Simulated scan of single mutants.
Amino acid sequence: MSEKALSKATAEDLPATIKIRLSDMDESYIFVSIFGWIIISVGLGIYFFGPDEITYNVFRGPTIGQILLASGLYIASLGVAVCALASQLKKKCVEKHLAAKEALVNEALDFDDKDIPAGYETSITWLDERTFRVEFAKKEQVTDEMHEATN
């Protein structure tokens, strides 16, 4: 069989190159991460370059500006928490992207396990982010390739 560029493949079409329509990954976490790093920078800047002493009126108490100048490390800690939140958002975005990719691959492969010949497994080789090659390979060959990929 000659190799074809398809959007869907049956067992009879293999080996085949399949192209899926995958949307780009949501990267909104980058803005949260940048915001966190800005907060960290401001907090450390206040801590290292801020005043050594702060005087305020005992009757009125410190102003908002004086409180901020007195708590540089607390501000930096807030920035670290925002960066940790961005890291969790990134993890969720990557998981969502990979789940969508897996669903599209399963949708593109239009055959069941019963269609795979005895002694063979489905072998998928990614050519780029949206294109992969699928074929039937002997079970030993797939296991050897997986072992080489992990070493």
Rank of each mutant, 00 (worst) to 15 (best):
Y47N: 04
A76Y: 03
F59T: 13
Q66A: 10
I67D: 07
L44P: 10
T55Q: 14
Y56V: 08
G61I: 12
G65K: 09
L69R: 09
I67H: 09
F48H: 06
I40M: 12
F48I: 05
G45H: 05
S71E: 12
P62M: 15
F59Y: 07
S71H: 14
E53M: 13
V58R: 10
T55F: 15
Y47E: 14
L69S: 15
L68Q: 03
I75Y: 01
R60S: 15
E53P: 00
F59K: 13
I64R: 14
S41M: 07
G50C: 04
G43P: 01
I75P: 08
G72C: 08
L69I: 04
L44W: 12
G43H: 00
L68R: 03
S77V: 07
I75V: 15
V58S: 13
I46A: 02
Y47C: 01
S71F: 13
F49T: 11
L68H: 03
G43M: 00
L69A: 15
N57V: 01
P51R: 08
I75R: 05
I46N: 00
P51F: 02
E53W: 07
G50W: 03
I67P: 03
A76F: 11
I46E: 02
F49R: 06
S71K: 13
Y56I: 11
F49S: 07
L78D: 02
Y47R: 11
L78C: 11
T55I: 15
D52A: 10
A76M: 08
L73S: 11
I40A: 02
P62D: 07
Q66T: 06
Y74W: 11
S71N: 15
Y56E: 08
I54Y: 05
N57D: 15
I40N: 00
L68C: 01
E53I: 10
S41E: 00
S71C: 04
V58K: 10
S71V: 02
L69G: 03
L69F: 10
R60A: 11
